[in-house]
């Protein structure tokens, strides 16, 4: 009985020894790590949505005081940067995108009863309306990391389409 038991124990140990590394590999597979410090700062800034990440920049829409506003966060410094000339108290941002240098922001917003696509250049503090041809209602926007082109979802005659627009 002693020998049998020993053999069985040895077999179990061998199986367990083989399975254990496999189990451990599964358990220890690399996981995405939350960026705790940044997440706490974002949480403190208020309810947020519609993130767009590019390079070391995060653009998003944050609600504060009952108003939605665009925020651009420098991830290296973990600080929001000012966007003078972009915000209007009567505008409602719907979608935002930023290039990899944090220089150009594309924004879809509702203003005075219409929805428009605008491009903001941070170095010039200048805002330009991007005309849609043929006309349509924009909703979501995406910007290439090199800032040279944007893709925008546009509603035309009841259908959603995607326009690709080169940025001059």
């Amino acid at each position: 009985m002693g020998a049998d038991r020993l053999i069985r124990l040895a077999a179990v140990a061998a199986v367990a020894g083989g399975a254990l590394p496999l189990l451990l590999t599964g358990c220890l597979a690399p996981l995405p790590q939350p960026l705790v410090g940044l997440n706490q700062r974002l949480e403190a800034a208020g309810p947020a949505r519609a993130p767009f990440l590019s390079g070391d920049w995060l653009a998003l829409i944050v609600s504060k005081g009952g108003r939605d506003r665009v925020q651009l966060v420098d991830l290296q410094r973990q600080q929001p940067v000012p966007l003078p000339g972009l915000e209007r108290p009567d505008a409602q941002p719907l979608s935002v995108a930023v290039d990899g240098r944090g220089e150009r922001l594309a924004l879809v917003r509702q203003l005075e009863g219409r929805t428009e696509l605008v491009l903001y250049r941070r170095n010039l503090m200048a805002l330009q309306t991007v005309p849609l041809q043929p006309p349509g209602v924009p909703r979501r926007v995406s910007l290439r990391a090199d800032g040279r082109e944007l893709a925008v979802e546009v509603s035309r005659q009841g259908q959603w389409q995607v326009d690709l627009i080169a940025v001059p």
């Binding site: 979501r140 090199d146 082109e149 979802e153």
Partner: peptide, 13 residues
């Protein structure tokens, strides 16, 4: 003529 939504470009376009 399908709807097309949620566009995203790769970094190099």
């Amino acid at each position: 003529a399908a709807d097309r939504q949620d566009p995203a470009l790769s970094g190099n376009g």
